[in-house]
Amino acid sequence: MVIIYAETWENEFKKTTFEAISYGSKCAQEMGVESIAVVFGNSVNPIGELGKYGVNKVIHVQEIDEFEPYSIALALSDITKELNGKLLVLNGTANGKSLIGILSSLINAAAISNVTSFPINHKPLTVMRSAFSSKGIEQVSSNSDCTILSLVPNALGIISNGDSNPSVVLKKIDSNHKTSILQSEKESGEIPLPEAERVVSAGRGLKGPENWNIITDLAKVLNAGTACSKPVSDIGWRPHSEHVGQTGIQINPELYIAIGISGAIQHLAGVSRSKTIVVINNDPEAPFFKAADYGIVGDAFDVVPRLTETLKSFKK
């Protein structure tokens, strides 16, 4: 069996969940076994749509309605052991990252994070993963009977040609938590960076936090997340949660636009997996141009508002 953690946020499946289901279901086919998604929470809807991504069966645990890592991990581990799961697939989201270590101990399974490829071998299970903050690629094999994989968001795509009508089985598992959640806050209207398809990012070249409107305007027309360089988050112009780079968030978007960022090696480490990189900088010697697909030497305050307008008329 292949078990897949079908993560939800506010009772809806995340986009990364469809990636995990697609991945797990494809692996199950290759292994000649069934794929089973595990869904938590009492008002998740519509569960049947997971069939589109190829899953054979859904186990729905209604009693566990919030993300407390130990509680979710224990339920996933019990289900995996009971069904003799050989592979457990997670998303590399904040929640997936909270689970992988706990699960590794509870199941006594090899845990491979940051996975960027489908299995290149099933016996032993072997995959490629991103390491050294995207400066290296590692091939890893599992030595254990069951293996846990967590996938880099946006890296492996969604396969949505399934037409299975998965059976949904309710399973009663009580919450067994070690921490109690007091409060969850989501910054409203924001696109979470790890799963954003497009990201607009700016650095000290913007000269001050009051100038960020040109960045958010561009992000809005692209339906992109906003990010910043480390110095900008260190001086408090933008929140830590926007810092992308080696010690910040590592992103994997289709499009990354870097404005007024010189491109220090630590910054590149967090963004180099982006499929297309556009760099706008007034310094033609900025090292970031060497890592870019498209470069514009120009003043951000002139170029960025005009780019926003050009995109607006393109969209019409």
Binding site: S104, N108, A109, A110, A111, I112, P124, T126, A131, S134, K135, G136, I137, E138, Q139, V140, S141, S142, N143, S144, T147, S272, I277, V279, F289, K290, A291, A292, D293, Y294, G295, I296, V297, G298, D299, D302, V303, R306, L307, T310
Partner: peptide, 25 residues
């Protein structure tokens, strides 16, 4: 040890950057 490292490699190099005039967005 449950997960065995097999080998490491460098990510593929990016192709040459295309520079675009700021007057031709």
């Amino acid at each position: 040890t449950l997960a065995q490292s097999v080998s490491f490699s460098k990510p593929p190099e990016k192709k040459e950057v295309k520079m675009i005039s700021p007057d031709n967005l």
